[in-house]
Design a protein around this nucleic acid. Structure first.
Length: 1097
RNA sequence: GCGCGGGUAGCUUAGUCGGUUGGAGCACCCGGCUGAUAACCGGGAGGUCGCAGGUUCAAGUCCUGCCUCGCGCACCA
């Protein structure tokens, strides 16, 4: 390994390279070794958001993992110790649904008939279905994470930690039992999470009804609207907006063409929001009175179905209540409130003390005692009956007007949630549920969130901040089977115990047994899942039996416990936990904002009164090439292996990072991966190959020979300066989370500066057989560029650069130091703070020379300009020009040779007499001119632009005597541009901006001389012969025998013939100045009227 | 419906404090160059900067409204 002498590089096969390297890494235990190499480094704590192995991984998972890996590898190279424990999310509804579908257990009854233990076992097995697929993907993409010792949310230890956390909340009074209105399917007996509900929205047309609520002690009725007539028996209140204006109107004239049921008699009076009169009323009416909603509050009305709901203790039942969310966008401005069947209704009912009783059972049928015609019937089939009952004379309660209690019916088209399994409409239904009182810790949540470094900031401040500012209590229980069971036992009187550990469970079971309640054994390794834990009956302090609340927890609670449950805190791993909380870095898709990002913070705040993480990178959604979200149902998920097996993981990862900002949606384009491969990696490989091949040929050993940077050529010092500049920017962008910018710039540097300029310009330097100092300097330069580039690329795309780095230095890049310093290795450093100065001293970059960089930029621009001149003048590149002049601009004498070669010009000189080639042109500077000229600016600008004699105008401006349309023109008001005079093959470029702008011109001599024509012909012939050599697959050092015939050729001088011989490695060469004698199989070509035949042997 | 983020060439995208000629890359066409790689260089074609107003001497950029895509929230009487 110590041998650092590079061997030559072969042709690139990225996939073979990567798979072979994976094997090497495995053998060397490279991941572990990279962490341990920073054994004394400051810890940088990463927390893996646990994926579920319940489905096959797609390319979108690769993206998230790429960013996790990138930061961890980067920080490792900076000297930090970055442990990466893997994790798996194994509980929850998705698992159950998968199993239910597979085993055709589509209802709770079916599951229970099958046996909860069998069902949960099936779930337990199911979660590992794709584990190997995940593992293979993870390894292949080189996401370094410890999958051999992951945390798994179904593990007893993990569950025990969750129980402990729950008990902390319970003891703090943050856990409570209540109701939550949830979309519920009576057929399957389950309620649904919002995610599933979202799957089942369907547009349906249903009857909506306008109902009269007859006031007590008043002849008028209040009109309210509902789209769910089945909730009307449960009505116990009416909500009005206190600020909304209502009117009391009297029916003056019957409506024509009445459709459907309902109606009102002349003289009848109703109350509704003024804004909605036109939409609601079909009759002609007169307004009797106008008043704000607040004056209606407290009025009592007759219950529609007097027997349906008992009044109980309520003093507010069947009265008008105020609610600020009531609007006049639809309905009547009065909201019918059935406490148990709407979220707003429920919250209002709880706040106002309305009676909370069901009129509908869990089976979706009206409870007995609601109304003789409704009892026991499925609610969705009762719409018509309800309408008929209301329409009857006097209405359903017999206390309404002659015309009944229905004012109107109207069909209503809306999106309504349906069961995605049975297609039945869901009912919003108040269920028993457990809550974490997040509203009690809202201020702390906000405070902790303020301390998080979010990338991008707007997710933290905006989306997440908004969510926290509106935080609601967390409905944490699910009436399901496969999950962490809620560790609360309860007796009939509502006494409760929350169990926080296995030991506590054992002691409580023992107590219960002692009190005479039979119980199964409760061993140390008791399975903390259903149905086992349901089997224990505990005893209350009063000696009453307590049964476990039959819920499991929201699986988001599980993953929210990851920071401590992964270590089995507080039962084990206390030191590990203490040293790693809160974590330094998490990274997931933006869809986790209300998911994991929230539950981590929610749990850490309620349990520890601390934040859970310090930095959070929130990634954008991954879309397919058409911009559609990748999802299983769309079937547009890209298989990562398509790319792993074609362009390799390096290119796939680099593409993902460079395709856009991490937080922007990424349109995953397969072509882009290919482009990245061809551009970035093939180029890098060929630069490397260029270096390695010659280094091997010459026996170059970077440790043996030396080359002082200051003494190297300006080309070397330029590329090294560019390297330093690029690396500095790269690092600065990394710190800003701008990985896309960093990597785009680095790629640009490799392709443009290194490959297309430095290597191209340096090729001949290495052809020299002798051990010249210039050749050694070039080799050192290439060596330094490549090793540094490898280190910069390594966190993003870890394969190829490791192969290169190993060959060039004998060491893996993944234990190499970050070129910009290793702050993590400094004494006293933490993940958040270190001595910047000391860190800067550990950086390892060549010196920067910005003026050299600027000069080279100009040289390259002039080279481009020169080529453009040739194209425009129709002069072929191989025919030399006798002379070129550079007019004005900075001194770049040291690059005249390069320019001469690039442009195929014999001599480059500086010419100071601008006017020999150029004249000036004036352009207005709007920024300076506008404040002075105001509205005349365009007129003034026009005068300047179209000046008949710009030279004279400039002189007058410089003399301070120029005035246009009353505006005094100063030098700063105009921009002087130089354009070449007619007849010159010339072109002008501008460098710099504003006051520093300079015009530089390049002029080429287009005259031919015998000497030039000879050289040009020689170059053309050489080029053809080289192409032939290539076609014949000759080795670079092979020699040839050459014979050449020409016709109508310019004279070719001896030194040019010799040049051909040298360039083409001709051992023997015969030149004929006529065409006769050329064999018919000779290659021939024509250039500028000359024909040439040649043979190569 | 509300909130957030987008809409720039056929595709992917850059565009700073508003400054008059909106840059790249891919693909395409023409030419050049090549012991230089799936390359390189020059040129060309391709843009109503989503639409409509407004502010301004000047708008891709600022303001308003609308359309559209994605995401989140809500679907609510």
């Amino acid at each position: 390994m110590a041998m650092a002498r590079p061997h030559s590089a072969g042709e690139l096969d990225a996939v073979a390279l990567e798979t072979a390297l994976l094997e090497t890494w495995k053998q060397e235990n490279a991941f572990r070794a990279s962490i341990d190499s920073n054994g004394n480094g400051a810890p940088f704590i990463f927390l893996e958001g646990p994926p579920t192995a319940n489905g096959k991984p797609g390319i979108h998972h690769v993206v998230a993992r790429a960013y996790k890996d990138l930061v961890c590898r980067w920080k490792t190279m900076e000297g930090f110790r970055v442990e990466r424990k893997g994790g798996w999310d194994t509980h929850g509804l998705p698992v159950e649904i998968e199993v239910q579908k597979r085993m055709d257990l589509m209802s709770n009854e079916a599951i229970e008939a099958y046996g909860m233990d069998n069902f949960n076992q099936a779930c337990r097995d199911s979660v590992w279905t794709y584990e190997s697929a995940w593992r293979e993907m993870t390894e292949r993409m080189a996401y370094w994470v410890d999958l051999d010792n992951p945390y798994v949310t179904l593990d007893n230890n993990y569950v025990e930690s969750c129980w402990w956390a729950m008990k902390q909340m319970f003891d703090k009074g943050l856990l409570y039992r209540g109701h939550k209105v949830l979309p519920y399917c009576p057929q399957t007996g389950t309620s649904y999470s919002s995610h599933e509900v979202a799957l089942g929205y369907k547009e349906v047309e249903e009857p909506s009804v306008y109902v009269k609520f007859k006031l007590i002690d008043d002849d008028a009725s209040i009109l309210a609207w509902t789209t769910t007539p089945w909730t009307l028996p449960g009505n116990v209140g009416l909500a009005v907006g206190p600020e909304v204006t209502y009117v009391r109107v009297r029916i003056t004239e019957q409506a024509e063409n009445w459709i459907g049921a309902g109606g009102a008699s002349d003289g009848e009076e109703v109350i509704l929001a003024k804004d909605l009169m036109k939409d609601v009323l079909r009759h002609n009416v007169e307004i009797i009175e106008e008043f704000p909603g607040s004056s209606l509050v407290g009025r009592s009305y007759e219950p529609l179905f007097p027997d349906a709901v008992p009044r109980g203790e309520s003093t507010t039942a069947w009265t008008v209540l105020e609610a600020d969310w009531v609007t006049t966008t639809d309905g009547t401005g009065v909201v019918h409130t059935a406490v148990m069947y709407g979220e707003d209704d429920y919250n209002l009912g709880m706040a106002a003390g309305l009676p909370a009783y069901h009129t509908v059972g869990m089976d979706g049928a009206f409870l007995a005692g609601t109304h003789p015609q409704l009892d026991g019937r499925y609610v969705k089939e009762c719409d018509q009956t309800v309408i008929e009952l209301l329409s009857a004379k006097g209405g359903s309660n017999g206390k309404g007007p002659e015309s009944g209690l229905l004012y109107r019916e109207k069909s209503y088209l809306h999106d309504y949630p349906h069961c995605w399994r049975t297609d039945h409409p869901l009912l919003y239904y108040a269920m028993d549920s457990w809550f974490v009182r997040m509203t009690a810790v809202k201020e702390r949540l906000l405070e902790f969130n303020d301390g998080v470094e979010w990338a991008p900031e707007w997710v933290g401040e905006g989306r997440f901040g908004e969510w926290l500012r509106n935080v609601k209590d967390w409905a944490i229980s699910r009436e399901r089977y496969w999950g962490t069971p809620l560790p609360v036992w309860r007796d009939d009187e509502g006494n409760m115990k929350c169990i926080g550990s296995i030991a506590e469970l054992q002691s409580e079971v023992a107590k219960a047994v002692a009190a005479g309640f039979e119980n199964p054994e409760c061993p140390d390794d008791v399975d903390l899942h259903r149905p086992v834990v349901d089997g224990y009956t505990l005893v209350s302090d009063d000696g009453k039996p307590m049964h476990r609340e039959p819920f499991v927890m929201d699986c988001w609670f599980d993953s929210g416990c990851a920071p401590f449950a992964q270590w089995h805190h507080p039962f084990e791993g206390k030191e590990t936990f203490d040293a790693s909380f809160p974590v330094d870095y998490i990274c997931e898709g933006v869809d986790q904002t209300r998911g994991w990002f929230y539950t981590l913070l929610a749990v850490s705040t309620t349990v520890f009164d601390q934040p859970a993480y310090k930095r959070c990178l929130s990634l954008g959604l991954i879309l397919d090439a058409e911009g559609k979200k990748m999802s299983k149902s769309r079937g547009n998920i890209v298989d990562p292996w398509d790319h792993f097996n074609r362009e390799g993981a390096d290119a796939t990862r680099w593409y993902m990072v460079t395709a856009g900002a991490p937080w922007n949606p990424l349109k995953f384009d397969s072509n882009g991966v290919r482009e990245t491969y061809a551009k970035m990696f093939l180029t890098l490989w060929n630069v490397y190959k260029f270096h390695a091949d010659y280094a091997a040929l010459d026996g170059f050993d970077p440790e043996q020979s030396t080359s002082d940077v200051a003494s190297r050529s300006s080309l070397d010092r330029w590329i090294l300066s560019r390297l330093a500049t690029t690396a500095n920017n790269y690092h600065a962008d990394f710190k800003q989370w701008n990985f896309h910018k960093a990597c785009r710039d680095l790629e640009e540097f490799i392709v443009n500066d290194v490959s297309n300029w430095y290597v191209r310009r340096s090729r001949r330097r290495l052809w020299d057989d002798a051990e010249t100092s210039d050749k050694v300097a070039c080799q050192h330069t290439l060596h330094e560029i490549l090793t540094t580039v490898c280190r910069l690329v390594a966190p993003v795309s870890p394969f190829m650069v490791d192969v290169i780095h190993r060959n060039l230095t004998g060491k893996t890049v993944h234990q190499a130091a970050w070129p910009l310093g290793i702050p993590g290795s400094l004494d006293g450093a933490t993940a958040d703070e270190w001595d910047e100065e000391a860190a800067a001293e550990t950086a390892n970059l060549p010196p920067q020379d910005m003026s050299l960089e600027a000069t080279m930029a100009l040289v390259r621009e002039l080279a481009e300009v020169g080529r453009r001149i040739r194209v425009e003048a129709g002069r072929r590149q191989r025919l030399p020009c006798a002379q070129g002049w550079i007019v004005s601009g900075p001194d770049m004498a040291e690059f005249h040779d390069i320019l001469a070669e690039e442009l195929n010009v014999e001599l480059i000189e500086v010419e100071n007499d601008l006017d020999r080639f150029q004249q000036i042109e004036l352009a207005p500077n709007f920024r300076a001119l506008a404040p002075k000229a105001r509205s005349e600016v365009n007129a003034v600008a026009g005068e300047i632009k179209n000046a008949g004699d710009p030279t004279a105008m400039l002189a007058s401006i410089q003399a301070g005597t120029c005035e246009i349309l009353g505006v005094a023109i100063e030098e700063s008001d105009v921009e002087v541009r130089r354009i070449e005079r007619e007849g010159f093959a010339a072109s002008t470029v501008t460098i710099g901006q504003g006051d520093d702008a300079q015009q530089i011109s390049l002029v080429l001599d287009m005259n031919d001389t015998p000497d030039l024509l000879s050289k040009g012909l020689a170059r053309d012939i050489t080029r053809r012969i080289q192409a032939m050599r290539k076609d014949l697959n000759l080795a670079i050092e092979a020699t040839i025998d050459l014979e050449i015939w020409t016709k109508d050729a310019p004279e070719m001088f001896e030194q040019d013939r010799q040049w051909i011989v040298t360039e083409t490695r001709a051992a023997a060469a015969v030149f004929h100045s006529e065409s006769s004698g050329a064999p018919s199989n000779a290659e021939h070509f024509e250039v500028d009227g000359t024909t040439v035949w040649f043979t190569v042997q």
